[in-house]
Each structure stands twice: as structure tokens, then as C-alpha cells.
């Protein structure tokens, strides 16, 4: 039971990644494909955050830290990584949606089976 609780976030990560893969690979609407990529991104972010979690440890803020926090702080790196990744993710999502808008303007469709003049 304890192992399940500890690994629960990783199970969620796996489920989210699977949903994202499904959306990217099998959904026809381009916006849903973008959503799939965003879901995978959330899964990866959650994976990073989970790695940085230590039970009973304190946030790495030295100002006004309580006594027992000495030597019992988590590394701030995973949080920093996740923040960077979220920022990058926003840029990527915005760019993808901009392209989708442009595709719709020119092709009049969002179906990935029809929006494919570049093939062979």
C-alpha cells in the first residue's frame, strides 16, 4: 500500500503520457493534436516536480527558516526546470495554435487528413 502511495504520481504521469500519445497519434482535429502535446508536456512537468518532492523536507528559502529546516531542504533544481519548461511550453503552444489558425485560413479545414498538401 505504501509503495502505491509513493508511486501514485508516477502512475498519473504514465496515464497522462498515454492520453497525450493517443491524442497526438489518433485524433484528427489539429487543435486536439496540439492539446495532446500540451497534455504530454503537463505529464513531463509533473514528473519533474515529483522527482523534487521529499517527504518532510522544507522549501529551500533560507530567510526566516525554522530550526529543523537546517540540512533538511529540497534541491530547488526540479522546480527551476519545471518553470523553464512551462515557459517554453507556452511559447510552443502559442506558435502551434498560430500555425493552426493560418492553416484554417488557407485550407478551410482543421482535419489532419485534409490539411496535407505536402506529401510524397
Amino acid at each position: 500500500m505504501d509503495a502505491l502511495v509513493t508511486n501514485f504520481p508516477f502512475v498519473i504521469v504514465a496515464i497522462l503520457v498515454a492520453i497525450g500519445f493517443y491524442a497526438v497519434a489518433f485524433k484528427r482535429n489539429l487543435i486536439k493534436i496540439v492539446m495532446g502535446i500540451t497534455i504530454i508536456e503537463s505529464a513531463v512537468n509533473m514528473f519533474l516536480i515529483t522527482l523534487g518532492y521529499v517527504q518532510g523536507a522544507y522549501a529551500p528559502i533560507y530567510t526566516m527558516a525554522p530550526e529543523e529546516a537546517q540540512g533538511n531542504m529540497v534541491l530547488p533544481t526540479p522546480q527551476a526546470l519545471t518553470l523553464t519548461s512551462i515557459v517554453i511550453g507556452v511559447a510552443v503552444t502559442a506558435l502551434m495554435l498560430a500555425f493552426v489558425v493560418n492553416i484554417y485560413r488557407h485550407y478551410g479545414t482543421l482535419d489532419s487528413r485534409k490539411a496535407r498538401r505536402l506529401r510524397e
Binding site: 489539429l30 510552443v92 506558435l95 502551434m96 500555425f99 493552426v100 493560418n102 492553416i103 485560413r105 488557407h106 485550407y107 490539411a115 496535407r116 498538401r117 505536402l118
Partner: peptide, 11 residues
């Protein structure tokens, strides 16, 4: 339109 399509696929 093709440029937007190629850009979307790439990103």
C-alpha cells in the same frame, strides 16, 4: 498555406 502546414508539422 503550405508554409503554415510545414511549420506546424515541424514544431
Amino acid at each position: 498555406g503550405e508554409a503554415a502546414e510545414a511549420g506546424f508539422k515541424y514544431i
